[in-house]
Design a protein around this nucleic acid. Sequence first.
DNA 1: TCGCTGAACATTAACGTTAATGTTCGGTCG
DNA 2: CGACCGAACATTAACGTTAATGTTCAGCGA
Lengths: 355, 355
Amino acid sequence: MAGPRRHTLRDIAATLNLSVNTVSRALSGKDGIGERTRALVRAEAERVGYVPNSVARSLVLGSAMTFGLVITNPSNPFYAQLISSIELRARNHGYSLLLTVTGESEEYETRAVESLLRSSVSGSIVVPVQASSDPWRRLGTVGVPTVLLNRDLPDLGYRSVGTDNELGGYRATAHAISRGARSIVVLEEDLPITTIADRIAGFRRAMAEAGLSVPRGSIMRVPTRRHEQAALPWQPQQAYQVAHRLLRRTRLPDAVVVGNDYFALGLYRALEEHGLKVPDDMMVIGFGDYPFSAFLSPPLTTVRLPAEEVGDIAVDLLLEEISGGRSDRPLKQLIAPTLVERESTNRTTFARTLV
Amino acid sequence: MAGPRRHTLRDIAATLNLSVNTVSRALSGKDGIGERTRALVRAEAERVGYVPNSVARSLVLGSAMTFGLVITNPSNPFYAQLISSIELRARNHGYSLLLTVTGESEEYETRAVESLLRSSVSGSIVVPVQASSDPWRRLGTVGVPTVLLNRDLPDLGYRSVGTDNELGGYRATAHAISRGARSIVVLEEDLPITTIADRIAGFRRAMAEAGLSVPRGSIMRVPTRRHEQAALPWQPQQAYQVAHRLLRRTRLPDAVVVGNDYFALGLYRALEEHGLKVPDDMMVIGFGDYPFSAFLSPPLTTVRLPAEEVGDIAVDLLLEEISGGRSDRPLKQLIAPTLVERESTNRTTFARTLV
DNA sequence: TCGCTGAACATTAACGTTAATGTTCGGTCG
DNA sequence: CGACCGAACATTAACGTTAATGTTCAGCGA
């Protein structure tokens, strides 16, 4: 497949007896070029199939017209959607996307920063692993505009977009309460990220407002796997095991609020094996509204994150940061998630909880 | 966030009173540099936080150490896994990943080729939209090594990796037959790609071998959406509607083989609404073994595609093509998918079909 | 002691593009 | 009619790196 050498501006200039600069200006539509010459150049470029070398272009312009996108795990449907929407909008603005997958690994994250710096990306959109903000501080030091996605690192002062997880946790919990739940358990991943802490805070606020207590054991943690296994369906599996521990309790909660819809899958399975029905024996509220969630049996009530909106805003924030223009838009944006009510909280009998 | 100018080799050379070339050689570990000087250079580079500019490096070396990855839809769990595994292996070989999402659009595909050429990628891994092979022919003409992923374009003669879809279709169908199915319907997307044609061919082969007829209406098509909607859960929804058409028939099939596990979701829902049980009233065989499939009710029997293996092979093929070395490995590789037997084909009664 | 050798560095060129500055020359205006 | 202007092009420099080629000079053998 080793083809012929690529044609350059110099080749075209040589065959037309013009200077390289004239050819460059002719093709890029700058003025100071005669119409006749411009047409000639364009025709010749077309004829030889000239493609500008954007590496050389990047070098002289100092910008690679490339965004670095650092994502933890594309197999998370939310991130998959983010990738799509960010890629689309970035491309519409003339930027390419350099993708890095960290798999929640701090080591890969550190390497990703190095790689972004080397590549002279024009900016980067990043889901930090978030154990430490140090790796990302370097980007700011060297002047690479950076937008934090879905997880913030407040001490860096970077722009960020994300979901209002506190509100999401609140709405999920409040909804369960409105449907008659009095004792509620939360199933969350055991990552040290604000995302999860915020959701739990929202849960506690809703419980407090309803005057409900949050006894020990109300927050259950699902172990995380990292690196290579990131793509495997470990999340439902792990949640399934944790759910079994929950279901062995003597007093079962009226509802379980889970950290993502994969957990709901594992929970559904465990409940089925215990002969328990959703929602009558236990209500389930998911998080994420994954593509399958509306089609589960019963369809899952869940908190929807507007991935497309978040992705678009991420790109817009980055473009603003690059252009240096201040905007009326706040530096930190929290998008309010919406609750999608489906059958998994549509309780018809209140046997145990309400007398 | 506009930081200080990046340090270059020249800066280091100036402060140490050395030539740029010496600094370059010292840092890249080439010989002809005194140990004392090398240590000095390294220390200074460390001190100022020197990061090599890989754009300049790419320009002089003629290679950007970057792979272009062109994917139709990251929200397809199979492609999501491919992205992860390809990114990991590419990075382990020192390559970055330039991601493009086509959303099954020929227009975006054509633009993607242009973008790859501009970026001087070292090679590309591509899931073609596959209406035409023309866009990709250009890559070969200009000498960009290209590996086709999951869908082949045989007339191009490029290396390719993919699933043996014929075998997958065959195994799914043969399995259903072995479980007592005599009349089987196939639900496939209406894309004009060989992937799907191959699966249907496998289906027909299995039916023929069992001496079963394939009456009209045995192959049902699920409409495709493109572009922006690629990320939305349209697949289960569309399959749900097609399934309703199927279930209105007077004579229902014993089993339905679907083109991907999302379709199984829609089918499950339709069946439930019609009061039909899986597998006793109808068996369902999926394709893809998506993360949720083992946790459906009942768990879905499905054909598993080894995404990680396919991704690794894609990178290996590309590396071979780049190094120009012939290998013992065949240019076209078809990985055999495996059938994962679960409850959706575990029929215990054969009420209607077998007397 | 002289010339040769090779280690250690310097200098120059090159990658392909864009930006800044020169040059030419036909036309125009005073 | 000559100076001037500006259109149309050419020339030069620059981006930051690597590769090819020069230069210096200490050490060595004859």
